[in-house]
Each structure stands twice: as structure tokens, then as C-alpha cells.
Amino acid sequence: MQKRKITEGIHWMGAVDWDRRLFDSLIPLPDGTSYNAYLIEGSEKTALLDTVDPLMADVFLGQLDGGPKIDLIVSHHAEQDHSGTIPHVLERFPEAKVVCTPKAKGMLIDLLRIREDAFLTVADGETLSLGDRTLKFLHTPWVHWPETMVSYLEEERILFSCDFFGSHIAASDLYVTDKGRVYEAAKRYFAEIMMPFRNVIEKNLEKLQPYDIRMIAPSHGQIYREPSWIMDAYLDWVQGAPKNLVVLPFVSMHDSTRRMVDHLVSALAANGVSVEPFNLTVTDTGKLAIVLVDAATIVIGTPTLLAGPHPLAAYAAFLANALRPKAKFLSIVGSYGWGGKTVETLAGMIPNLKVEVLNPVLCKGLPGEEDFRALNDLAATIAAKHKEHGFL
């Protein structure tokens, strides 16, 4: 992929990674991803905004061949998929300055061993002139690391947002052409890395309100030429009330828990409650994270294994606790053979969730009529709670 013109003197640079299917050895990438950098040529100075993952360094460095001298290398975020190729750029342009937040400076030295005299740190709201163009830097901590910032190009009104508003999509189109596809990818991205920092992200969204943003150029995914819809989506994901939705991650070993889950799904639907079950043996955890953004209730289904929850169910509880969704209620269903402490173990794994724990339904062996009645009661209780809080 060659560098691509956005407007006169402003180019997209970077790499499209069509084949990558796992990020951070953890996050599924069903649509691949891209590593976006941007080149801005002013009348006096040229700025390079971000770089690429070192795995794609050769592609990126080839785009610099025959180009202008780089004066400034803006690092919005110290993580290697954005800043990992900065040392290579500095080898080619040793007089360039790395522009970043004060907190990012120390992180970049630790992560990439960039020499200390290469840095130019900028305060929140500070500007740098490129001659006929002006970059304004806004600190946006916890989007999604503590050192992050965004850049606003004042004359063209372009927001270079790094991970903010990003999406993991590999595409040949430079700009968003399929909003439905990008909405889901951006929501997945938000759920997986942004959701734990909702309160701080809300403040960062407020910080952007005074600016006339005509275009958003993120560091993953496609460029937004109509930025209002993705900004509105973020406001909903951050501020919006939970929806009339139950997310039900489960695992079953000998069909007992599966029968309980199937019955509960039917009972919830009969009570007017939407539900999305996720069989944890085959689930894309990104899809599960997407549903956690909106769900008012989480129900974990698990058999008892070695006196505790199945490891996959424990992972689901760990994931929910780490992502800190807006859910208001939680319960547990499952079966056991001879005893255990499944409920106590799972309850101890979710200290970050501000939820009301509803009575769990655990049965010995295969579920019977009494157990199914208890599941009906749980479904009715969830429906009543949703109605009471205005979700239903």
C-alpha cells in the first residue's frame, strides 16, 4: 500500500494487515486491522503523526522514501502498534523531535529506548506551528492508556484521534463506506479496550465538544468524513442507560447446565426480555464484549468443577470484572454433582461490578421441575427489575 492523499499536503501512511487475527495475544481480529500514520507538510515544517507496528515497518519506511524531511514525529500513544517504528524513523531523521505528553516520554524511553534528548513534550492545549498549518494537542488520558493525546489540525479541522474512535478493520477504502460494518467494529473496539474507562472517556468527549471537527482520522480503521455519527455512538456507549438485555455466557459439561440455560432463555423471552447466550467453548470474546456494552443483566451458566466454577465461566467473570460494563444485575445458574463453592468463587471475582446479585439457581445433577420453576422465577425477577428501572 502506497501513501494516499487526503488533501493537499496531507497523506495517509501506514499498513493494512489483512491476515492478523489476534491482537495482544488476546483480542480476536475477525476483519484484520490497519496501522494508520499521517504525514502533514506545512510551509516550514513536516510532521509525521504516529508510525506502525514493527511487524509492518518495512512497508511504512518504504513510504518515506523520496518524501520530505521529517521535523516532528507525533506520538499520540506509546503502545508499540503506534510508536514501535519511531526508532527506525529517528535513524533516518536523527534531528527530528518526538512530540508527546510528559507521561508518554518516560513510557517511550522504557518501551523503545528512545534517547532522552529526542523529545519535545507538549502541555494540554499547546500548539505547534508548521508554518501555514497548526497542530493543537489535547491530552486524552485513559483512551486507553494514561499518556494518550489527540491532535487537531486547526486549518483543515481534522482530528487525529489515535485509538479514540478506532476500529480493527482491514480495507482498501481509505474512508468509511459501510457504516454498519464500521459501527460493529468500533463498538467491539470500544468494548474490548475503552469500556473500563467510561467515566474518563466521557470527560474526554466533553473536551472535544468546542471543536469543529470535519474529519476524524484514527490510527486503526477507516477515516470518518462524517464524524458526528461515531461521536454520537460513543456518547451512547458511555452515557446511555443499559438496555432490556441479558447476556448469558455459559459452559456445559454433561448437558445439565445447557438444559437450564435453554429453559432460562425461553423464560426470559416469554417475559419480554431480550437475551443473548454465548457458549464459551466456541464464543468470540469480542462478540461477548459487544453485548456487555448494553446489557442490563449478566447471568453466568456453569457446572461445578473441582468444587468451583468451570474455568471458562471463571474467565467470563474475570472478563466482565475487567471491562466494567454498565450492567445492574447479575445471577448464576448451573449444576453440581456433590457440592462446591461455585457461587462464592464467582461472586468474589467481580468486585468491580456495581450490580445487585439475584438469587442463583443451582441444581444437583439434571434439572427437575423444581429447578425449572426456580428458573421461571429468576426470569420473572429479571423482567420486574428491568421494568422497575425503565429498561423494559
Score class of each variant (00 low, 15 high):
residue 81 D to C: 14
residue 170 A to Q: 07
residue 204 N to S: 09
residue 257 T to W: 13
residue 155 E to C: 11
residue 25 S to M: 01
residue 66 G to S: 04
residue 194 M to L: 10
residue 28 P to K: 13
residue 271 N to A: 05
residue 73 I to N: 02
residue 16 V to N: 07
residue 321 N to L: 12
residue 110 D to A: 11
residue 108 L to D: 01
residue 231 M to H: 06
residue 149 M to N: 07
residue 379 A to W: 03
residue 187 K to H: 06
residue 112 L to N: 06
residue 59 V to G: 00
residue 118 A to L: 05
residue 36 N to W: 00
residue 30 P to R: 01
residue 132 D to T: 03
residue 151 S to F: 10
residue 210 P to V: 05
residue 201 I to F: 10
residue 310 H to V: 03
residue 34 S to C: 11
residue 146 P to W: 09
residue 69 K to V: 13
residue 82 H to A: 11
residue 10 I to L: 13
residue 204 N to L: 08
residue 12 W to G: 00
residue 157 R to C: 14
residue 176 V to W: 12
residue 40 I to R: 00
residue 213 I to E: 09
residue 279 N to T: 02
residue 311 P to Y: 12
residue 141 P to S: 07
residue 69 K to N: 01
residue 134 T to R: 11
residue 336 Y to W: 11
residue 54 P to F: 12
residue 143 V to F: 02
residue 164 F to L: 15
residue 206 E to H: 07
residue 362 L to H: 03
residue 69 K to H: 09
residue 173 D to T: 09
residue 231 M to L: 15
residue 371 D to Q: 13
residue 350 I to P: 03
residue 284 D to F: 12
residue 150 V to H: 07
residue 13 M to Y: 08
residue 167 S to Q: 15
residue 377 D to E: 14
residue 142 W to H: 12
residue 119 F to Q: 05
residue 20 R to E: 02
residue 212 D to R: 13
residue 382 I to V: 14
residue 158 I to P: 04
residue 203 K to M: 13
residue 380 A to H: 10
residue 260 M to P: 11
residue 82 H to F: 15
residue 388 E to A: 15
residue 38 Y to T: 12
residue 75 S to Y: 02
residue 229 W to S: 06
residue 341 K to R: 14
residue 115 R to F: 01
residue 202 E to R: 14
residue 355 V to E: 04
residue 139 H to F: 00
residue 150 V to K: 03
residue 173 D to S: 15
residue 248 L to A: 04
residue 253 M to F: 11
residue 200 V to P: 06
residue 16 V to A: 07
residue 197 F to G: 00
residue 198 R to P: 02
residue 313 A to E: 04
residue 241 A to K: 15
residue 338 W to T: 04
residue 316 A to R: 07
residue 316 A to Q: 00
residue 387 K to P: 06
residue 40 I to K: 02
residue 210 P to I: 05
residue 104 A to F: 06
residue 303 P to E: 06
residue 214 R to I: 09
residue 184 E to C: 04
residue 281 T to G: 10
residue 349 M to P: 03
residue 346 L to H: 11
residue 191 A to H: 03
residue 269 A to E: 15
residue 17 D to R: 10
residue 369 E to S: 02
residue 218 P to M: 00
residue 85 T to Q: 06
residue 190 F to P: 07
residue 365 G to Y: 12
residue 168 H to P: 01
residue 370 E to R: 08
residue 385 K to W: 12
residue 299 V to M: 05
residue 112 L to P: 00
residue 286 G to L: 04
residue 132 D to W: 01
residue 361 V to I: 13
residue 147 E to P: 04
residue 89 V to T: 07
residue 156 E to A: 06
residue 233 A to Q: 13
residue 245 L to T: 08
